[in-house]
């Protein structure tokens, strides 16, 4: 069910655990589906020995995709008008991520209602991995 503006207020928070114990296999799935085969994400040998990281880590776009799942589950399908993020920290195999949206504004434009959201996705240590914003059309 799409969200209603009348059920929302500025400061309202919604959150969802979007991945629990991220697996290397899910990162491989993302590489295959997105076409981003950067070996930093799927090749342990390369990531450690050549790039100097402790292990392979997730694509930033996987953490954005996971954050987007929280948005579409909450807002309803086809309601997003804007979605933007900055990748503030890497996401590693084994991480559990919680995506959180906070209502920053409710607007009406041309008879349509919109919600603006601040986004923050954090790992199991409470560190922010994705920060961003989104806007969506909501019912009256």
């Amino acid at each position: 069910m799409p969200l209603k503006a009348s059920d929302l207020s500025v400061g309202h928070v919604h959150e969802e655990v979007v991945v629990d114990n991220l697996t290397r296999t899910q990162i491989v799935q993302y590489a295959g589906a997105s076409g981003d085969y950067n070996p930093l994400h799927t090749d342990e040998t390369y990531s450690k020995e050549v790039a100097g990281y402790p292990t392979a880590f997730a694509h930033g776009m996987l953490s954005m995709g996971l954050t987007g799942k929280m948005l579409t589950n909450w807002l309803g399908d086809g309601r997003l008008t804007k979605f933007g993020v900055r990748f503030s920290r890497q996401v590693w195999p084994g991480d559990t991520l919680t995506a959180k949206a906070t209502v920053s504004a409710l607007r009406e434009e041309g008879g349509q209602h919109f919600v603006d959201l601040d986004l923050s996705t954090t790992n199991q240590k409470g560190e922010e991995v994705v920060v961003g914003s989104a806007s969506a059309r909501v019912d009256a």
């Binding site: 390369y46 020995e49 050549v50 100097g52 930033g60 954005m64 979605f83």
Partner: peptide, 26 residues
């Protein structure tokens, strides 16, 4: 990426281990 060796492309010059990463997407 790795095969027989850890990478199939040998870096020339100073190296330093930096890499290209995705910073933002909107």
């Amino acid at each position: 990426g790795s095969g027989r060796e850890p990478t199939g492309i040998q870096r020339t010059g100073g190296g330093g281990g930096g890499s290209g990463l995705h910073a933002e997407q909107h």
